[in-house]
Amino acid sequence: MKLLRCPVNGVRPVSEFAYGGEIRSMPADTCSDIEWAHYVFNRSGVPGVKVEWWYHIASGTWFHAERDTVTDRVLRTWLPGDLPPAADGKAA
């Protein structure tokens, strides 16, 4: 079972976490209906390093995780509003 580092609770098994999807910014009010529909319904499946929402269920902590979807390696995790820490040197 995979391990994941919660910025508050440290390294925990992935069964304690829920995935919240890739972090995407909502388009501005001025966007077209097509752009809005793209935002709502389409997700990028392109493999690579993504920043995602993860939730530590037991403590109710949402955080950001930078994950390489090719290797399924989590490079770093941090709380929303905090600056991302330096990436794990062994990653890539």
Partner: peptide, 8 residues
């Protein structure tokens, strides 16, 4: 959970 995420 979703309300927490939205406010995060």
């Amino acid at each position: 959970r979703e309300l927490q995420r939205l406010n995060a």
